[in-house]
Amino acid sequence: LAALHAEGPLAGLPVTRSDARVLIFNEWEERKKSEPWLRLDMSDKAIFRRYPHLR
């Protein structure tokens, strides 16, 4: 499970980098069924690119 911001401008976004990794992994797991070539990237760089508020 990932903790998400409940309200405000960040509502629905992950609270920590660990939470972001959970979301990225879950999405990758779903997408790899139809796109088996996808690589999993959970590096800090990938997290910041996707969720800049975690910098």
Rank of each mutant, 00 (worst) to 15 (best):
E29K: 15
W37S: 11
D19R: 02
E35S: 07
E30P: 02
A46Q: 08
L54V: 01
A2K: 05
A6L: 14
S18Q: 15
P52K: 04
R49K: 14
S18L: 13
D19P: 01
S34P: 02
A2T: 07
G12H: 05
L54P: 00
R49N: 13
W28E: 02
L38Y: 12
L23H: 03
D41I: 06
V22K: 14
A3K: 15
Y51W: 15
L40N: 02
M42S: 05
R50F: 06
E7I: 10
L10P: 04
S34K: 14
N26M: 14
F48T: 08
S34W: 11
D41K: 04
P36M: 05
H5A: 04
D44M: 11
W37L: 10
L38Q: 07
S34E: 12
E29Q: 15
R55F: 13
L13R: 04
L23S: 02
W37N: 13
H53I: 01
V22E: 06
A2R: 04
P9E: 11
A3W: 13
L1C: 14
E7W: 11
L10A: 04
R49S: 14
F48Y: 15
K33N: 11
W28L: 02
D19M: 07
L40R: 02
R17N: 08
R55V: 11
L54K: 00
E27A: 07
A6F: 11
H5K: 11
P36Y: 06
L40H: 02
D41V: 04
P52N: 02
D41Y: 06
R17C: 14
F48C: 08
L40Y: 05
K33Y: 09
H53Y: 08
H5I: 10
F48G: 08
P9T: 08
P9H: 09
G12I: 03
G8S: 05
A3D: 10
D19F: 04
E30Y: 11
R49M: 14
F48H: 07
S18M: 14
L23D: 02
R39Q: 14
G12P: 03
E7P: 08
L1W: 10
I24Y: 03
L40K: 02
G12M: 06
M42A: 06
K45A: 15
A20C: 02
R50M: 08
D41W: 05
S43T: 11
A6G: 12
V15E: 04
T16A: 07
S43D: 04
A20V: 01
P14T: 01
G8M: 05
L38I: 11
R31S: 06
I47S: 00
S18I: 13
Y51S: 00
Y51V: 00
W37H: 11
D41R: 03
D44G: 08
S43I: 02
E27C: 07
I47N: 00
Y51G: 00
K45I: 10
S34A: 12
I47C: 02
D41A: 03
R39E: 15
G8L: 03
K33V: 12
R39T: 14
